[in-house]
Write a protein that binds this DNA or RNA. Structure first.
Lengths: 207, 207
DNA sequence: GAAAAAATCCCCTGAAAAGGGGATTGAGAA
DNA sequence: TTCTCAATCCCCTTTTCAGGGGATTTTTTC
């Protein structure tokens, strides 16, 4: 049985070293490369096509989301496992949309990493979402409202500091419309002013 | 010449492994332990007193700040190097106040870690603050206004979603006063509404 | 002990947001 | 095909915020 070829992408040398150390303890895994950015990752993939790419989501220049899109476009058979710290869960759906097969917390243990790799290599999805979440966090997550695309648009503009009428101009709609969206956002987030709105939105990476 | 004894504290196994891998490449360093939380770190220190403790700031239960306070209280001669990801710079001053001797980004290279350890062991402060910052970030950082303690207090309450009068009640002052602070904050941050305020404050970890 | 900085308080105006109410249109789901 | 939902638009009232203008007191710093 062939070993599973894994490429790790992360801008933190520490994490790369850590992953190398942990992956080398897994007997069915073979490391094909360690890349500290998306460019180098694509180079590495070209020379030695891995089975799985484990990539950080938050990276300067080209993010993990974009890298995943690139990989899936050029090498659809390569599986991608996204890695992030706990406060970026909002990016998971983005990653999955781009074709990621797994989601790993940076606080993952060797066992979890092992499980993630073997699960993903069997064409299944691995999500380590709830593993380290407190009840409070779970509650907060479940309360996360579903926003329409227009609402997201308006929210990000609010967060940019624009007023209703400025946003209305940008979106070519009436200020009344923007105000409606704003009110819906307040209701959905269950807050009663802009401050609460931005705070929550920022917390869940929506802005 | 004796080796410098180092203990690493981080709740992420990946980082611990990474640090171990990187530190073992430094010939003048001897790892006395790897702890995944503050409790275990204190145990480790008891059995083998290290010269330097490298600790993550963001940890569940007991934070790096609290751990540093504990260490400096019980073992004043032990040096502490704080470690964090880039968006927590606001904690640096807290760490320094608690007696930390260094600050290391998690994106640090082996060279930087080496430098941090040797600098700190020579009783100097090591701050890796500006190392990996882009010009844009540097500019933004340098523009960061100095807030008074009252202003910080008011800002965090604004971010919590309270109105001026609610804040006034909490602080036992007149709403006029709170309004003054709010206006000063707007001026200092050079923004013109609450949204811009919170966004900036959040960006620099002030809330 | 004087000067500077921080914290407090007050007033006014106009703009913006919050909190209600409602209505219409179009697209997609049941 | 109805029914729901998203998106659009409108009006009203009250509250809060933003942008000015000041002033006083306390605390810190030199």
């Amino acid at each position: 049985m062939d070993k599973i070829k894994v490429l790790v992408v992360d801008d933190h040398p520490m994490v790369l070293e850590g992953m190398q150390a942990m992956l080398s303890q897994i007997d069915f895994v073979q490391i094909t490369g360690l890349a500290r950015n998306a460019y180098l990752a694509m180079e590495d993939i070209k020379t030695a096509i891995p089975d799985i790419v484990i990539t950080d989501i938050n990276m300067p220049e080209i993010s993990g989301v974009e890298l995943t899109a690139k990989i899936k476009k050029e090498y659809p058979s390569v599986k991608v496992i996204a890695m992030s710290t706990f406060n970026e869960r909002s990016l998971i759906s983005q990653m999955v949309q781009q074709g990621a097969s797994g989601y790993l917390l940076k606080s993952a243990s060797r066992e979890q990493i092992e499980e993630a790799i073997s699960t993903v290599s069997r064409n299944k999805l691995y999500m380590s979402l709830d593993l380290e979440l407190s009840n409070k966090e779970q509650d907060e997550m479940s309360k996360l409202p579903v926003l329409t695309s227009r609402e997201k648009e308006v929210l990000s503009l609010i967060a940019e500091g624009f007023t209703n009428s400025q946003i209305a101009e940008k979106l070519f709609v009436s200020p009344y419309t923007v105000d409606s969206h704003r009110k819906n956002l307040l209701t959905k987030f269950d807050v009663n002013n802009t401050a609460g709105l931005i705070k929550l939105a920022a917390k869940y990476g929506l802005v």
